[in-house]
C-alpha cells in the first residue's frame, strides 16, 4: 500500500513496507540524510523529526503512522519559521552564536526536539528543559544547548 506524506512541504508517495521506520524511509528512500541514526530504539533522540509539529523519534515510528501527515526534518526547520532558502530559524542562529555543536551528529535531533518544546512551552524552566530534552549528546554540548535556548527564550 503506498504511503503518502509531505516532508518539508513536498509531497512524497512511497511504496514500502508499512513497518519500515520513518527514519530509514527518510534517509535511504528519500535521501534526506540530515536526520541521524543513533540507537534505533528511541533512546537517543538523534533521529528526532516533527510529525504534524510534534517531536518524534523517527527510528521508532513506522512509516505507515506518518501516512497523510506533515513531516519537518532539520532540512526544513528554517522554512517553518519563515526563513528564506538558505536562511536559519532563530534557534539555529543561536546554535551558531553559542557554537553549540561539537561533532554535530546529535544536533539535528537536538534542534528538532528543542524547537518542538519551545512551541509548546516558550519559557521553559531549567527543570522543564531537562525533562523534555533527553537527547544524548556524546560530546557533552549540553551546557551550550541550554545557553542557546536561554538566548532565544530571553530575546
Amino acid at each position: 500500500m503506498p504511503i503518502s506524506f509531505r516532508v518539508n512541504g513536498k509531497e512524497h508517495t512511497l511504496d514500502v513496507e508499512e513497518d519500515m521506520p520513518l527514519l530509514w524511509a527518510l534517509r535511504d528512500e528519500l535521501g534526506l540524510t540530515g536526520t541521524k541514526f543513533g540507537c534505533g530504539i528511541a533512546a537517543c533522540g538523534a533521529c528526532t523529526v516533527q510529525v504534524d509539529g510534534m517531536a518524534m523519534r523517527s527510528c521508532s515510528v513506522p512509516v505507515s503512522y506518518a501516512d497523510g501527515s506533515d513531516i519537518t526534518t532539520i532540512e526544513g526547520l528554517a522554512a517553518t519559521h519563515g526563513a528564506e532558502e538558505g536562511g536559519l530559524s532563530p534557534l539555529q542562529q543561536a546554535w551558531i552564536e553559542r557554537q553549540v555543536p561539537q561533532c554535530g551528529y546529535c544536533q539535528s535531533g537536538m534542534l528538532m526536539a528543542v524547537d518542538a518544546l519551545l512551541k509548546d512551552n516558550p519559557q521553559p524552566s531549567d527543570d522543564e528543559i531537562g525533562q523534555a530534552i533527553t537527547n544524548i549528546c556524546r560530546c557533552g554540548s549540553y551546557p551550550r544547548v541550554v545557553a542557546a535556548i536561554r538566548d532565544v527564550t530571553r530575546a
Partner: peptide
C-alpha cells in the same frame, strides 16, 4: 573564534560517513 564547521551542523547539510 567561530568554527568553520558549525553552520553545516545546524541545518542538516553536514555530511558524516553515514551520509
Amino acid at each position: 573564534t567561530k568554527r568553520f564547521d558549525v553552520p553545516g551542523k545546524v541545518d542538516g547539510t553536514a555530511r558524516y560517513g553515514l551520509d
